[in-house]
């Protein structure tokens, strides 16, 4: 079982980690299938609060757009894998994630998502 947090802005991956106020936490089974999925809305945009939430949720992987080096290194230090620089719609990114093909820096365009 793997817990993945996706930083969101509406139906897209949030362009900035520190400006994100909505996240989706998914639990992936061994086969990559989504076992559980929930959306959380934060009180306000704060990278520090988001880091606390990530650690509190025992998240193993974070998917986001841009993230500051300081927070990136902090999460790595806490043994959280960060797939940053991801651009795309949530459904397309989630599809690639469950297929085990999502990497940091991926630009998932709708036509290339499949």
């Amino acid at each position: 079982m793997k817990r993945v947090l996706l930083a969101l802005r509406e139906n897209d991956i949030a362009p900035r980690f520190d400006q994100c106020i909505e996240v989706m936490v998914v639990e992936l089974g061994e086969d990559g299938e989504v076992r559980k999925q929930e959306t959380l809305v934060l009180a306000g945009p704060s990278a520090d609060d988001l880091c606390r939430l990530i650690l509190g949720q025992r998240t193993q992987v974070v998917v986001c757009g841009g993230i500051e080096e300081e927070h990136y290194q902090y999460l790595l230090w806490k043994k959280v894998e960060v797939l940053d620089g991801v651009i795309g719609r949530l459904d397309d990114v989630l599809g690639r994630l469950t297929a085990g093909r999502l990497e940091a820096g991926d630009i998932v365009r709708p036509e290339a998502a499949a």
Partner: peptide
């Protein structure tokens, strides 16, 4: 890489979120 993407995804300006 940028062509066709929304400005907010490439520029990642703090103003674009609000």
């Amino acid at each position: 890489e940028s062509r066709g993407l929304f400005c907010a995804n490439i520029l990642r300006c703090n103003r674009s979120a609000r």
